[in-house]
Design a protein around this nucleic acid. Structure first.
Lengths: 259, 259
DNA sequence: GCATCTGTGTGCCATAGCGAACACAAACTT
DNA sequence: AAGTTTGTGTTCGCTATGGCACACAGATGC
């Protein structure tokens, strides 16, 4: 019962030289992540780190009053739990599964051990950390200067890059938590995009019809961050696998505290 | 002509065990940084990294249209140029000297070399990188959810922590570039704080009279980030040296592109 | 088939922050 | 001492977004 692991499905894993991968493989396990699952709480320890394949995880910063904002997105391009190898142990961000799917997971401790010993792994993971920082700083400016429509476009593009198809399964309510705006704001923005024929949506399902136009209406942030990520991690490729979605429900409290 | 270096003036340096410090010391040089000096351009390489003592450096993200926002502040608690040891080489942020003073500087390459060889140094610098990330993610939420007054308070507190006295030398125009808001917005907020007897200011000089009240009016962000930094880097202490300010002028273009 | 829940549409008002224009006074220059 | 530059105060209108309340329709369950 030795399962064949298709580690190519995660770009960080795929970018590792085979000796290194041999080292890690015995410790990797493919797990299913369900929608809304919380992989890490703000300030909490993580026993495991996760390399998503077809799942998507959001790092959220949740304020005392329950308001929130997405700080970065992690899909098949990255790993959830960088504070585990950076040495801090925990971070201020909550990690929530935003799109159900699978991820290779591994004991944090093992990754840290290997990280400390292997310069190649170190370089790779630190570059990834840097690309996360690029995302974070972009969020800060974007939140300050760009409109909801622009941000929705940027956000959708980020999702598309991490999904096998052009269909984002997400209610406007949840999107609003990601963007840190009102649900009505999202309804409004999504309405505009739909009228422009760029997307088509109904009840928790957004289909992107015209990616080019979406990019045109997005703020510069998407392109800038994408380019920086590509620079830092040359091998990133679009996700090609089939997507299996659970029908698990996300509880509101997973995204924001009680109001 | 061997100058005695008071490396305790920078907390990262001060936190290093003495063997390590012995290693680095020959390569450290104390330099004066003048107001508005650009230490790193977005996407540009850095020949040197800087450990500020009594100077303060801002990391800014500047948009295509010239609008900007401060992503994080670096004073005697940190180092400018983390992308140099993280392996990315450059970052998306511009590093601008915001408060003139001095910094220990060192060839990036040397720091990277030592970083790769010395686990203690590595741990220290990676923890610092993590505390920067905490700052960044806080900025993102703060920009989204908090008022200008709250943010001004938070920002002033951050400055105070890195200054030897309670006087921030900075025009409202420049502060507005940091917060990513209009100058008038800052005038307004500062006016309110002055009326409340919390600060006192005139023409590029803000004196903080009541730090406690300032903290009370600030958003939670200040405290959260401070606490996280303290957790990650236990030894941080307030800056005690005398501050020598140059009278160099900052040109507007250092903060934001031509409009 | 009926009740219920959940996701979306809409309208109304309040307000924070933007853009622009301009007045004024402190500081610097000569 | 006079002119110039620089930093701040103020005003007016505008827009994006927030808060709230509620209607409505697709989905789900009994």
């Amino acid at each position: 019962m030795y399962k064949k692991l298709q580690v190519q499905q995660n770009n960080l894993l795929a970018a590792m030289p085979s000796e290194l991968l041999m080292c890690l493989k015995p410790h990797l396990e493919l797990k299913s992540l369900s929608l809304g699952q919380v992989l890490a709480e703000s300030g909490g320890l993580m026993r495991y780190v996760y390399f998503p394949t077809n799942s998507i995880v959001s790092l959220l910063y949740v304020l005392e009053n329950g308001a929130s904002a997405e700080i970065s997105v992690i899909g098949n391009d990255g790993v959830v739990g960088i504070s585990q190898y950076m040495g801090g142990g925990s971070s201020l961000n909550r990690a929530v599964v935003q799109s159900a799917g699978q991820a290779y997971c591994m004991l944090s401790r093992r990754l840290k051990n290997e990280f400390d010993r292997n310069p190649v792994l170190q370089d790779l993971l630190l570059r990834y950390a840097q690309s996360l920082m690029a995302q974070m700083s972009q969020r800060a400016v974007c939140n300050r200067h760009h409109t909801i429509v622009q941000q929705l476009c940027r956000w959708l593009l980020g999702e598309l890059d991490r999904l096998p198809n052009n269909e984002v399964k997400m209610t406007q309510e949840i999107i609003s938590n990601m963007l840190g705006v009102r649900r009505e704001g999202v309804t409004d923005a999504a309405g505009k995009l739909q009228q422009a024929g760029i997307i088509e949506y109904s009840r928790g399902r957004i289909r992107v019809l015209d990616r080019a136009k979406l990019q045109a209406m997005s703020c510069e942030c998407y392109a800038v961050v994408k380019q920086e990520s590509d620079r830092l991690l040359p091998q990133v490729q679009p996700c090609q696998m089939a997507l299996e979605l659970d029908s698990h429900q996300a509880e509101p409290w997973m995204y924001s505290a009680a109001r």
